[in-house]
Design a protein around this nucleic acid. Sequence first.
DNA 1: TGTACATCAGTGAACGCGCGTTCACTGATGTAC
DNA 2: TGTACATCAGTGAACGCGCGTTCACTGATGTAC
Lengths: 210, 210
Amino acid sequence: MTTAKEKYHHGDLRSALLEAALAVLNEIGPQGLTIREVARRAGVSHAAPYRHFTDKDELVLAVVEQGFELMQETMQAEKAAVPDDPLNQFAASGLAYVNFALEHPAHYRVMFSGDLLSSTGQVSLQHTSRAALQEMVSNITECQHLGVVREGDPVTQALTILSTIHGFVSLVNDNRIEHLIVNPSSLESIRDAVLTMIFEGLGSREAAKY
Amino acid sequence: MTTAKEKYHHGDLRSALLEAALAVLNEIGPQGLTIREVARRAGVSHAAPYRHFTDKDELVLAVVEQGFELMQETMQAEKAAVPDDPLNQFAASGLAYVNFALEHPAHYRVMFSGDLLSSTGQVSLQHTSRAALQEMVSNITECQHLGVVREGDPVTQALTILSTIHGFVSLVNDNRIEHLIVNPSSLESIRDAVLTMIFEGLGSREAAKY
DNA sequence: TGTACATCAGTGAACGCGCGTTCACTGATGTAC
DNA sequence: TGTACATCAGTGAACGCGCGTTCACTGATGTAC
């Protein structure tokens, strides 16, 4: 399939390993993400990955970073596709966040649960999440200045939104919601309703519902 | 310490094992919850637990059920301690939920992440979570009738609240928040602010902030 | 109250498993001449 | 262009580890008489 793989005996193994890691996450889940399984999928011996990652930790970290990049990209893209109404842009990137998490549950989980990462590995992610929160805060502040988001500490507001979204996708991904839904409303309509509730709650009193 | 333990050679081992399991969760975390470690803590051989649990799954399930009972009790107690204002009672049980999760992070995690439970084990929990959601929904409906909660589908509202609370405690328990907080505001004040935002967002337009 | 016996909770050795990691190796690659 | 050689990506055997689970056992308990 991929051209890089067959270039020579050893092709672009690092990428192939990350690709295999993703497949493992999608098909087995986080607990299946082992050096040996990834090597198996990539068609190499289980010692081969150690040419590209000193550690299991380093492999997992690479997967996580790749996830954050991918998420960031799609959020930016969705945001850019919306006319320049800050609140709608903010909502669009929120929707993109949720969709990323729902479409890549295991990847998302590895990114946020820290199950597979040693504590030193965790530390190297702090910068990433701090940057993400910072952007949310500045989005909110902008919306407040425009009068479309209610007054209040933007950090708290950002944490509340983050909590809701993270909680929703965690519950869905851990199968804690599916069996609760009896009426024919699909998961997507629940997703939309929850997002609407967040942004309604966030909106200033006079702002129209989006 | 406990009296039951020293009654005879084999005392109330089942309880002792559950107690040990809790200690493991608090001190090591979910990934440390193994039959062998629990037996070690209880001071018995690692084959002994099989007299009381057919499976690791059954042990984990017992721990989870114990957790749900404990959480349920504290929520009921907090609710009962509040004068009969439905919205405040609802908020009180929400606060109790958050506190339980923050005080017993590993226990909470095992209850909700399903990491350690096989899929058959998961199924036996569905009844519990369905009942919990059902109660939330009826609380909300009651508040709507009293005019203190805004109109709308109560299931969606319940899921939104559940998502926010679950997301918040998950982020805190996975250490995804601590490093984000720079100002001297403690975790508790953030917790309160988030809870306030939920219930403000939930309140009807004319209802006073609680 | 005393004795014989059945029960069954807990023991410890053993099993097979998959894991992360190491290490001496080999053989294809790229490079210097 | 052709040859000799150094490099280094990938191999496969081996290590020690902790796990879940099984099994023949032992010895304290409760009970029948």
